[in-house]
C-alpha cells in the first residue's frame, strides 16, 4: 500500500493494516512516539483500531534534544 510517512512516499507491506502494525514494523527505539494520522493526533488506545488506506499520511513524532 502506498502511503506517506513523515513526508516520504513509502510502500508498506500489504499485511500492515493499522497504525499499530506500522509501529511494530519499524520497531522505533524511542520510548515515546506520537502519531498523527491524516492531520488527526491519535491516542495510544486508537493505534490498533485505526485502519490504513492508500494515500493516508502519517507523522511519527518524537522528542529530541532542544532548549
Amino acid at each position: 500500500m502506498e502511503i506517506r510517512i513523515n513526508g516520504n512516499d513509502v510502500t508498506i507491506p500489504e499485511n500492515l493494516t493499522t497504525i499499530q502494525d506500522v509501529i511494530n514494523h519499524y520497531q522505533f527505539k524511542s520510548p515515546i512516539i506520537i502519531v498523527e494520522h491524516n492531520d488527526h493526533i491519535l491516542k495510544k488506545e486508537d493505534y490498533d483500531q485505526t485502519k490504513l488506506k492508500p494515500g493516508d499520511h502519517i507523522e511519527f513524532v518524537q522528542f529530541v534534544g532542544g532548549g
Binding site: 510517512i5 513523515n6 513526508g7 516520504n8 513509502v10 519499524y26 520497531q27 522505533f28 527505539k29 524511542s30 520510548p31 515515546i32 512516539i33 506520537i34 507523522e59 511519527f60 513524532v61 518524537q62 522528542f63 529530541v64 534534544g65 532542544g66 532548549g67
Partner: peptide, 19 residues
Amino acid sequence: TFAVRRMDIFDPQQPNFLE
C-alpha cells in the same frame, strides 16, 4: 526542555535520550 521532531523512518533504531 525538548524539541519535537519527526522520527527517522530510515533509521528507526536511532537511540533517544529519553531512554
